[in-house]
Design a protein around this nucleic acid. Sequence first.
DNA 1: CAGCATCCAAATGGATACTG
DNA 2: CAGTATCCATTTGGATGCTG
Lengths: 126, 126
Amino acid sequence: MAKIKENSTNSLNRKFLTDCNLTYAVQLMGGRWKLLILMQLNAGTMRYGELKKKIVNITERMLTLQLRELEADGLIARQVYAEVPPRVEYTLTDIGRQLVPICDALHGWGTLHRSHVSGEASTLFH
Amino acid sequence: MAKIKENSTNSLNRKFLTDCNLTYAVQLMGGRWKLLILMQLNAGTMRYGELKKKIVNITERMLTLQLRELEADGLIARQVYAEVPPRVEYTLTDIGRQLVPICDALHGWGTLHRSHVSGEASTLFH
DNA sequence: CAGCATCCAAATGGATACTG
DNA sequence: CAGTATCCATTTGGATGCTG
């Protein structure tokens, strides 16, 4: 038992091989939760429980899964402290931190798109 | 029959409602194929068959599905010509085009990450 | 040419309960 | 506190064949 998958620390969890580095990047940061986790960690090192509280609607299962993948892909680092009760901290790595500006840009684009759509709607559904 | 879903042109295919514009953006451009399609169309207007040839490994089903979603979300425009044989052309919209630089940045990051990982590997597995 | 229909496998995401 | 384990629903992706 134990172990979610057989890719602990030095293998990437790629679903398929690809030459395209855009496809490759999408595999690393894609999905509903990963960028959200990255953005939280950009504010500073955080514990598991803090992330759980900050990221609305995420379940423990999904948080754990996504954290494990991000760690395996080298975007975040996991630090366990031998204490009781246990303390585990997550931190952005350098390569993970380099995704932050892209994240911001995407956030800006989403905001723009949303206003664009609702702006259109008001003229469309006159 | 006809119609893949009940969201033709003016409704967004969001899987869930969200306040977060980053989450919102991820819903619009996420998945394996959408950014690839966008990048192809950035080179210029293209026909269905051309896209099919350019995007390696995509099936007709997935290409159609993703094109429909991109259209419904206003990132691309679909132009049908009443000819025989039929001709259908896809073009980036303005809002779709604004995603291109982000795409490029992501591509650059993917390339960086990849070299970073393979670079590490050579020192890791000494 | 540009697709749609059907069937199916795998991945993703979630609810709930339990543990070192 | 920081997860696991189990079970289940939904989504994504794919193979193949057919059509206006």
